[in-house]
């Protein structure tokens, strides 16, 4: 089996699983009823999921990546401009070789 044939099978599996998760969540969410407590819980849980994905990535950061993250967050908090914040962080990442030279 070629890589493309394997990838085609993988696409089919991923597509079914991804749609199933999205649609399953929608069905469950639609049947939750009017409980404000449950509603609030499920409104915040996706952000917790993002935090849980981010956490282990942050532990493995290099110094430059850490600087990039801090710069991005500060730019976003100061300007509320998402793309500017991401561009600032990416610029720090791209200038890694110069930053390392300066720090050395």
């Amino acid at each position: 089996m070629t890589v493309e044939e394997r990838f085609a099978i993988a696409i089919g599996i991923m597509a079914v699983v991804a749609f199933g998760c999205r649609a399953g969540g929608l069905v469950v969410g639609s049947r939750l009823g009017e409980s404000p407590k449950l509603r609030r819980l499920f409104n915040v849980l996706p952000a917790c999921a993002m935090g849980a994905v981010l956490g282990p990535s942050l532990v493995a950061m290099t110094v430059v990546q850490c600087v990039a993250l801090v710069v991005s967050a500060l730019v976003f908090l100061a300007s509320r401009r998402f793309l500017l914040a991401l561009a600032s962080g990416t610029a720090v990442l791209l200038s890694e070789r110069w930053i390392i030279a300066i720090l050395a």
Binding site: C21, G24, G29, A49, M50
Partner: peptide, 28 residues
């Protein structure tokens, strides 16, 4: 190459989408 491994891994990674689906139900 293992299709079941891909299916289980996809499910573990995609469960965030389930939570977002639940959250989106109210908006839609």
């Amino acid at each position: 190459f293992s299709a079941p491994v891909i299916a289980v891994s996809s499910l573990l990674i995609c469960n965030r989408l389930f939570l977002m689906g639940v959250s989106m139900a109210d908006h839609l």
